[in-house]
């Protein structure tokens, strides 16, 4: 941190503008694609694509706007760990719901 003071410029204004452009384009793609019926390819394709774009946008924001790219391992770890814990919550809750449907593991 303290020793970083000399090189804290990170990516500069052009870099920030590039990130901004990625985010706007990402938003535009999400919006357009939401009206296409991708579920006909396979069920859930729309959801998957929307979330994939959202994840990409989030990653870009975290890496460049939040400076995670230049941060210590601990910051990386806490960012990744929080999503891992979210995943635990989602996965272990949904495993109950997925298997509660009639016919699966029930009388």
């Amino acid at each position: 941190m303290a020793e970083n003071h000399t090189d804290h410029e990170h990516i500069g204004i052009p870099g920030y503008l590039a990130v901004f452009a990625i985010l706007i384009v990402g938003t535009w793609i999400t919006y357009v694609v939401a009206f296409w019926d991708l579920d006909s390819i396979f069920p859930g394709a729309n959801t998957l694509l929307a979330l994939a774009i959202a994840f990409t946008k989030m990653t870009v924001v975290m890496l460049y706007f939040m400076h995670v790219r230049w941060s210590k391992e601990l910051i990386w770890l806490s960012a990744v760990a929080s999503f891992f814990w979210l995943l635990i919550m989602f996965a272990f809750t949904m495993q109950d719901y997925f298997t509660r449907v009639s016919g699966v593991f029930s009388a």
């Binding site: 938003t27 939401a34 009206f35 019926d37 729309n46 929307a50 979330l51 959202a54 975290m62």
Partner: peptide, 30 residues
């Protein structure tokens, strides 16, 4: 920098809320 982190976090939440609440299911309408 810390205020910025908070602001970007709030932005990230919206990045997910927008497709999840507004967009999913829109392709059903033709």
């Amino acid at each position: 920098e810390m205020s910025g982190l908070y602001w970007h976090f709030v932005d990230i939440v919206w990045i997910f809320l927008f497709p999840l609440l507004y967009l999913l299911g829109r392709h059903f309408i033709h």
